[in-house]
């Protein structure tokens, strides 16, 4: 098992853990954190994929995509936190279980 494969597989495991959290954890903040765990899994995969060739310099295109992804993840998280606060303000709930107050 090569080093890149180990990183890719760790990334995909993190992605699956995050995916589970996004769909099956009701608390909004936990769900947001699960979303970020998913994102980190994808980032890890991109870093590993960039390094698969024998070239000492990694492929710059996945690295540039990664930089883009980090910034989008940060801003999406901030936006989601804003939504969550408003949701809590309006409904008094912290869970998205669909049952209402």
């Amino acid at each position: 098992m090569t080093q890149e494969l180990a990183y890719s597989m760790t990334g995909m495991l993190l992605f699956s853990i995050g995916l589970f959290g996004v769909f099956f954890v009701p608390h909004i903040l936990r769900r947001l954190m699960a979303m970020n765990v998913m994102a980190v899994g994808v980032f890890l995969l991109l870093i590993a994929v960039a390094k698969r060739n024998a070239d000492p310099n990694p492929d710059p295109v996945p690295h540039a995509m990664l930089l883009t992804g980090i910034v989008v993840a940060i801003s999406a998280t901030a936006f989601a936190v804003g939504l969550a606060r408003k949701f809590h303000e309006v409904s008094g709930e912290t869970d998205l279980d669909g049952e209402g107050p």
Binding site: L5, M12, L13, R52, D59, V61
Partner: peptide, 30 residues
């Protein structure tokens, strides 16, 4: 849910495993 996530993880791990080890990549173009 755990079963579904586990199945997803299994499929993803398998997909990553069968990626070609010598990719074309865009390093040369860049």
């Amino acid at each position: 849910g755990i079963l579904l996530a586990g199945a997803m993880a299994f499929m993803l791990l398998d997909a990553v495993r069968i990626l070609p080890s010598e990719p074309s990549g865009l390093t040369g173009v860049v």
